[in-house]
């Protein structure tokens, strides 16, 4: 019953002509998009490099802010549970809840189009993600190790450096490369809204229906993502 009803609703809101037509259009597009326009690669070196830089710098900036936020948000390290912790949690939730594409749109309006807007968009979106995972790692540390360092007469900062940091270092490294890996993928589309990188070329090629160029760009993005996966696997392996 419900299935039939749902089916009717979906059916009503679908233009069936386009659906029946899909295989033909897809084949058509495929023939137009192949072979990729290999010469175009000469113009893609700079954009793909920009994309990698947006992801890397964005991740770096995010981590610089995420680390203190995580320490302020973790129950066992926050200086004040009722004032500072909620503020830190608010930062985490608000930066996390908005997609980096939307951040990029906002930032382009504020600081103009370009790579810098992309870097900041990626950075803001990543703060919440990194800080959340990191503060969860901080809350899970073994407190007896912290107590042992405290008991030696160490200062608050020394307790942090000796008792807490060694315990969260593997988690930190894992989070950093994981987010970097995600950011490479996210930064490939940022150009669609004008925030620099390979997405700019992708958008331009789509607009002029230059399908062979689009194919080449997609292949390049695929390679970049494979590369980042490979790096992060290596790093994770080395640290954990």
């Amino acid at each position: 019953m419900i299935f039939t009803y749902c089916w009717q609703q979906i059916s009503k809101s679908t233009t069936w002509f386009f659906v029946w037509d899909a295989p033909r259009i897809a084949t058509d597009l495929w023939t137009r998009a192949t072979p990729p326009k290999w010469e175009y690669i000469s113009q893609l070196g700079k954009p793909i490099w920009d994309t990698l830089n947006i992801a890397t710098l964005g991740t770096l900036f995010a981590l610089i802010i995420a680390v203190p936020v995580a320490f302020l948000a973790a129950r066992n390290t926050t200086p004040s549970r009722f004032i500072i912790r909620p503020i830190a949690l608010l930062i985490i939730v608000s930066t996390r809840s908005i997609n980096s594409l939307i951040w990029a749109l906002l930032l382009i309006a504020i600081i103009g189009p370009g790579v810098f807007a992309g870097v900041i968009a990626i950075a803001i979106r990543s703060i919440g993600f990194c800080a959340k995972l990191l503060y969860e790692a901080i809350e899970e540390i073994d407190e007896t190790q912290v107590e042992a360092i405290t008991a030696t007469g160490a200062s608050r900062w020394q307790v942090m450096a000796y008792g807490i940091v060694p315990q969260i270092l593997p988690a930190f490294a894992g989070i950093a490369v994981f987010r970097w890996d995600i950011n490479i993928r996210e930064s490939t589309v940022l150009g669609l809204v004008g925030a620099g990188g390979i997405g700019l070329q992708l958008n331009a090629s789509l607009n002029v229906l230059a399908w062979p160029q689009v194919t080449l760009i997609l292949i390049l993005i695929l390679l970049a993502v494979i590369f980042s996966e490979w790096i992060s696997a290596k790093v994770r392996h080395a640290i954990i």
Partner: peptide, 8 residues
């Protein structure tokens, strides 16, 4: 439980 910092 010794309470050494395990990763140092």
């Amino acid at each position: 439980e010794y309470a050494l910092v395990e990763r140092l």
